[in-house]
């Protein structure tokens, strides 16, 4: 594949999704409930793609993504409500705060081999919750009310696209390949001159940054921030999105984030059944396809166009090896 072609791949997918979104807006714009779901889908896309950078591309197991979302949410809210800082700057402050917290959590844990990150991120999310509950100025356990509702579909969608572009540019570059190498084999990566700790921290901090951005968008959409919005179960939602979409697949995360947002909304009344189903899906996918449904593969324009051809070829034995039409990045 030529370079121009591979560079075109991501924009093409983006355009396709943009059209889909615009179509949906045109269809549902009179209904605030559907607008809300579309907004949530875009925010969840930001969350899933940024978590995928940490878990899927760099192979680290973070399960506190909602915690970073919470940091971004509360800092952005404080900026808007108490300091009357302009919306976009407030969002940026939230994202930067989450990134700084990511750095503080990441540096001690990521230099170690093993799974300490999982527990550290979980624990950190819990600490954040405790801290928020204890700050009366931001409402403590009652929640933070009266956040100006600046977020609309234009912003959520623009930021979702921005996140996808930044992260896909990153993974398709030399530093991004270093992250992939760390995921594959840390010892071998170091023997290739890759500073594993550095790239783990970079990926983790970038992921935290975008999670913080997502949090800022969310609270300016709902006009409220509440400690229960950023719990462990919320992190699990994002994890399910990347597992269903495929660890290491950006287009997969985008698709799964939108899909699961809608499903979760539909199953809102059956919360316990939803969690039971999610957990079983999680276990089943891991047992049958540990790389996630799409694995590391990206949906591409050629892939989508070629579906009929691929289906035809499936009937013939010995052709294709299943990689036709879906390409690694």
């Amino acid at each position: 594949m030529t370079r121009t072609k591979s560079l075109l791949k991501v924009p093409v997918v983006m355009v396709a999704l943009a059209l889909l979104y615009l179509g949906l807006i045109a269809g549902f714009s009179h209904n605030p409930y559907y607008m809300q779901i579309l907004n949530m889908a875009a925010i969840n896309t930001i969350m899933a793609v940024s978590l995928n950078l940490i878990n899927g591309f760099t192979g680290q197991f973070s399960i506190g993504h909602a915690g970073f979302m919470g940091v971004g949410a509360y800092v952005a809210a404080v900026c808007s409500v108490f300091y009357k800082i302009p919306y976009l700057v407030a969002l940026l402050c939230g994202a930067l705060a989450a990134a700084v917290v990511g750095l503080v959590v990441g540096i001690p844990t990521l230099r170690l081999k093993g799974d300490y990150l999982a527990i550290a991120t979980l624990g950190f999310a819990e600490i954040i919750r405790v801290i928020i509950v204890n700050i009366q100025k931001v409402g403590g356990p009652r929640g933070f009310l009266g956040i100006p509702p600046y977020t609309n579909l234009l912003w959520t969608y623009l930021f979702a696209v921005g996140t996808v572009v930044v992260i896909s540019n990153f993974v398709n570059s030399s530093p991004g390949r270093a992250c992939l190498a760390v995921r594959e084999d840390e010892v071998a990566a170091e023997s290739m001159g890759v500073n594993a700790t550095k790239y783990k921290v970079i990926a983790f901090v970038m992921g935290a940054f975008f999670a913080g951005l997502g949090g800022g968008l969310l609270v300016h959409l709902l006009s409220i921030a509440h400690p229960t919005m950023f719990t462990f179960l919320k992190s699990v939602d994002f994890l399910i999105m990347i597992v269903v979409g495929g660890q290491g697949s950006i287009t997969g995360s985008v698709t799964a984030a939108s899909f699961i947002t809608v499903i979760s909304e539909a199953l809102r009344k059956f919360e316990v059944w939803r969690m039971l189903a999610y957990s079983l899906v999680l276990i089943m996918i891991m047992l049958t396809r540990p790389q996630g449904l799409l694995g590391g593969k990206e949906l591409t324009w050629e892939g989508i166009v070629n579906v009929p051809g691929r289906l035809r070829r499936f009937r013939l034995p010995k052709v294709g090896g299943g990689r036709v039409g879906t390409t690694g990045h």
């Binding site: 197991f61 597992v243 316990v272 039971l276 957990s279 079983l280 999680l282 047992l287 540990p290």
Partner: peptide, 21 residues
């Protein structure tokens, strides 16, 4: 013998399953 992240995800799935069950 799969990547560790698969086993960790499964463990998390089992945990959520037990709670909700």
């Amino acid at each position: 013998y799969q990547p560790r992240i698969a086993a960790l995800t499964t463990a998390l799935g089992v945990s959520i399953f037990l709670e909700n069950f």
